[in-house]
């Protein structure tokens, strides 16, 4: 029912691309006024970049008196518009808690999180829904797409809940599907898709609303290496071509090497940060491995 011939697809794609670019242009520059850089923390700020995400000394404490676990212990960092950042850390380092707090699925104990200039730590439930709908895109490890909907409908869902007119939905789905090379699979149901295809559908759904920030939680975790590579290349493309700001949580050095910057977390604190700069992916990968093995070694010393 959503059959498009190649020609239509191409024209739709071009329209969609134009529209996406137009929409991206329309995103207003985020004001940084009033935001303070936390002293003592090195922050990478590319020239002319705007912080889309600004975390300010966030803490997350579980448990009650006497039995306290500090999952996040004063984390501060910025992610600027158009950046592609990975957060790495061992199991239990707090990286998933951090992502849950940023995505407003969990609440911080103290500190502030600003997304597109808005403090999300004191939003109410309804505003949080709107925030997730309008400003965030999600990609999870277990490709959370609805099994009852076709790939097309799963992608369109992100727009229908924003009450976007259906003509625009059609154009934008066609465009984003073309970007992610899933045009052929749009009519299929999730059970007919491979893991990689499912993740790319999830990526399409995350990106189609032009969110301020795309959050990916171990997106390659459940994929074989070939699919993982394809997905990471898709992310790279989304970042470069559609200027998507992506924050990816992973413990996979290979996945992290695709990003521009890697933040390492240990025991709820930022341990260090690597910036790729002009290095090749291979060189960057080696540097990441060094930090990871250092972290592992340090742990071994403790043990």
């Amino acid at each position: 029912m959503y059959e498009l011939n190649a020609l239509e697809a191409k024209s739709l794609f071009q329209k969609g691309k134009k529209m996406t670019e137009m929409l991206i242009d329309k995103i207003e520059p985020v004001t940084t006024a009033g935001l303070q850089q936390t002293p003592g923390i090195e922050t990478y700020v590319p020239a002319g970049g705007q912080p889309v995400l600004h975390c300010e000394n966030i803490e997350k404490v579980y448990g009650s008196r006497g039995n306290i676990t500090r999952a996040l212990d004063g984390i501060s960092f910025n992610v600027n518009k158009g950046e592609y950042v990975a957060i790495m850390g061992a199991s239990g380092s707090g990286k998933t808690t951090l992502l849950n707090c940023i995505s407003s699925i969990d609440r911080v104990t103290s500190g502030h999180i600003y997304v597109a200039g808005r403090d999300i730590t004191n939003l109410r439930s309804k505003q949080l829904s709107q925030f997730r709908r309008d400003d965030l895109g999600f990609i999870f490890q277990d490709s959370n797409i609805l099994d009852t909907l076709t790939a097309y409908e799963n992608i369109a869902l992100a727009l229908t809940i924003k009450k976007v007119p259906h003509r625009e939905i059609e154009m934008r789905v066609a465009a984003v599907a073309e970007h992610l090379s899933i045009t052929d699979t749009l009519k299929k149901f999730p059970y007919q898709l491979s893991g990689g295809q499912k993740q790319r559908v999830a990526a399409a759904r995350a990106i189609i609303t032009n969110p301020s920030l795309v959050l990916a939680d171990e997106p390659t975790g459940a994929l074989d290496s070939k699919s993982a590579k394809m997905l990471l290349e898709s992310f790279d493309m989304l970042n470069k071509n559609l200027l998507a700001t992506i924050l990816m949580v992973t413990h996979d050095s290979f996945a992290a090497s695709y990003t521009k910057r890697v933040i390492f977390i240990q025991d709820g604190k930022i341990f260090t940060e690597l910036v790729r700069g002009d290095q090749s992916r291979k060189e960057f990968f080696n540097r990441i491995i060094e930090v990871v093995s250092f972290l592992g070694g340090e742990n071994n010393d403790v043990l």
């Binding site: 995505s103 699925i105 439930s125 309804k126 829904s129 709107q130 925030f131 997730r132 709908r133 309008d134 965030l136 999600f138 959370n144 609805l146 099994d147 009852t148 869902l157 992100a158 809940i161 759904r205």
Partner: peptide, 13 residues
């Protein structure tokens, strides 16, 4: 499924 809907920002209403 509803959990997922909430995650992608569907309002409770």
């Amino acid at each position: 499924r509803y959990h997922l809907l909430e995650e992608i920002g569907v309002e409770r209403k």
